[in-house]
Design a protein around this nucleic acid. Sequence first.
DNA 1: AGTAATTACGAGGTACGTAACAATC
DNA 2: GATTGTTACGTACCTCGTAATTACT
Lengths: 282, 282
Amino acid sequence: MELEQLKQLAVIAQTGTLQAAADQLHLSQSALSRSLRRLEDDLGRPLFDRTRNSMQINDAGRLALEHAQLILAEEQRLRDDFDALSKRTRTVRVASVAPAPTWRLSTIILEQHPTTIIEPDVIDERTVESRLLNGTCDFAVLPRQPRLPTLRSLPLLTEELYANVPIGHVLYDRDELTFAELDGHSFLVYGGIGFWREVHERMLPFAQFVTQPDRTIFLQQVRTSDLLTFTTNAPENTSGHESRKAIPITNPEAHVTFWLCMRNDAPEHVQALFTLIQQASV
Amino acid sequence: MELEQLKQLAVIAQTGTLQAAADQLHLSQSALSRSLRRLEDDLGRPLFDRTRNSMQINDAGRLALEHAQLILAEEQRLRDDFDALSKRTRTVRVASVAPAPTWRLSTIILEQHPTTIIEPDVIDERTVESRLLNGTCDFAVLPRQPRLPTLRSLPLLTEELYANVPIGHVLYDRDELTFAELDGHSFLVYGGIGFWREVHERMLPFAQFVTQPDRTIFLQQVRTSDLLTFTTNAPENTSGHESRKAIPITNPEAHVTFWLCMRNDAPEHVQALFTLIQQASV
DNA sequence: AGTAATTACGAGGTACGTAACAATC
DNA sequence: GATTGTTACGTACCTCGTAATTACT
């Protein structure tokens, strides 16, 4: 007996004729006829009452059909479970305090495992930490090295903040700047920058911020606006700033090393990715 | 995915090695290795963690195994149900008031369907009738034609009773006898004669009966005893009476026609047998 | 005539066993 | 060296599709 034959039995019973069932199963009528015959031989009795050109399911057929449906349903559950398992192992949940580290992660992971699904969340540091500890994310990105013995960590990248100054602005000719010099000006900022927003607010208490949550619209606005903006050394930040000058900010708060963190008891596929990133970051 | 592969998974998981499983499955190790590989490919992930020369079932394997066992158990239930169905259709339960009609039935049925199992019960008329009506037998044999419209019936055979007289007995020279002439003598009788016992007791109120329930011992005793016995025209009654003379009994009570009865709603295979017997009895 | 199921036949694919190989105990 | 799992190769079997056949509507 084969699962394929049970599927065929179900379709034949449902359609009522071999021809219709064969069409639905992408099989010739004769092949289906023989396959059904083999099943009947295996079970020791006909499952259909036959006239010369019609078939009618009989008691034995109905009995077999009941069992077949239970078996096929169980097979489907098996496949569903495995699909869920595959999805789980293909997905990496990343909780990060800033977007650039997740971009870097994507670049490294997708190069080796193009089918991986990366689910980034840019959120505040406390939430990142708690999600890592309670297992609701696979990787955490923090602006410092965690020291818990239940965690492994590595320095993922160091991001440097630049003031992005439009032509004609009073600060355009400077070669470097400090937060103190920037304070009091107006800035156009992208909304999803997480950690950096706190830096801005702490270091520039008197500045004005216009926040654009949509990244595409933000980049368009940068081209036409004469407001100051920020950019960093992350390669994903280079586009759309052609008519502007990126001026380094010298304060130590403008240079941040982001650490990739993982629980020691992370699933195997997560550990493998961690090792991959470790090698790529050397 | 095939049921065979799920069986193999179960055996591999149980034995722990491919070689042991292959032996148990009457399959070469390499074939089993490939078959398992195909299952893993089908499900999209390994079911065992492999070193170069050992295998250990992993989480995915255990998950698959759970489902596999449910599926295989359901397949077994299907087969069990079909075995029970086969046994039921191969078995014919006969309730008869006398043994000879069941012998006749066996002869006719086994000639065409040698695998049929015939379960005869020789019991009293009222019980035969009730078993037929409540469905606890397929065929009933009665000493009269039933007239219920829910039943079909046919005359199966007419049995004629003979006095079986040993050489030297006072009645040995007679050519025919009546119950009245036989009354008062001593008889050796077989126990399992059902209906005929009532005839004896009613027609021979003053006779002595020595009853032997075992047919083989009865036939041996007949050879050596000088008691009167009975026999009939049933072919199965001819053996073992060589040193005796069978003398017809003229009373109408000694000539009985047995009717085969079946419910109109009997299962198909029982109806087919009824038709067979009808043709054979012409 | 048209449809439905079975049977005949040739072809392609697939799973098997044997055997060679690699690695571990 | 014995055992275990994987890979290579040739073969045999098995199921498929096409087509012919038979019967029913």
